[in-house]
Amino acid sequence: METLTYLKNFTEVAEEEIMKPGHVACPGCGAALAMRLALKTLGRNTILIFPACCWAVIDGPFPYSACNVPVFQVAFETAAITAGAIRAGLNATGKKGINVVAWAGDGGTMDIGFGQLSAAAERNDDIIYVCYDNEAYMNTGIQRSSATPWGAWTTTTPGKDFKKEKKKNLLEIMAAHRVPYAASTTIAYPDDLVHKFRKAMSIEGFRIIHIFSPCPPGHKALEKDSILEARYAVESRVFPLYEVEAGTHYTLSKNPPQRPVNDYLSLQGRFRHLTEEQRDYIQKNVNAEWARLMHHMRVSEAITNEHPA
């Protein structure tokens, strides 16, 4: 298998804009930029499956579609299953060379669609599953999801009742399914995002890409700060960028100098209420999670070497 390397410069990305202007995303939408880059990489031989999520709206009202590739909008909990079934249907009719891409939000992935996601992963359905994660139900009015981080305000975790549960760790859960490819990325690192889609396309079976997607209205952040917020998420180690192959082989994608988590929190009104102690608590958790990830990577590598499959 050809080893994929990172882009040397961004001109290696296809010039063609498959996603067209005229989408109806909010200004500064991370999910819209993610789609633009993803489609540039995936190319036109792609079928997109949207469950209920922002992107079911962003694509535009019929007959206008910003995506410019076939789109299947499905029920909230069914993106992974429908994608798997489309692949099975394509196989049954002998059609090859098509990217089947489920493209779901964090609620559709980690809450209502979680059972079906797990089932598709276990069956190793030959799809690329993308979770664009804006960390709440933004489309219905900013209700908390299991991807909402500790400390965040949402309309169902208001004021002093900010969310007291930690964010579900999607990538570790998917790695535990031992799927061929699982990776995290975000819009502030377009080279990384493109690389991970290219890599996913080079692998068969179940592939999942988890994209951190800033949401200015939901995060109560400035539209102009979306890229900055995504960059700070990585630099502060709130959202580490890494890959897991076969559920066991870890690669850290980016390791910039660590930035205090408060830089990341301060960009967003949804964390405005947090006291200094609470910010410290988040910092400690981020440090611990990072240490756990580093440890996990080393141990997993050592065990793989000890017990080659």
Binding site: T140, T155, P158
Partner: peptide, 25 residues
Amino acid sequence: PITPSSELMVRMVHRLKETNGSFIQ
């Protein structure tokens, strides 16, 4: 959450807090 009922849920978040009830999303 589901449109057009979410406003009812959000009101219950606040009202159950005031009346010591339970709310689960």
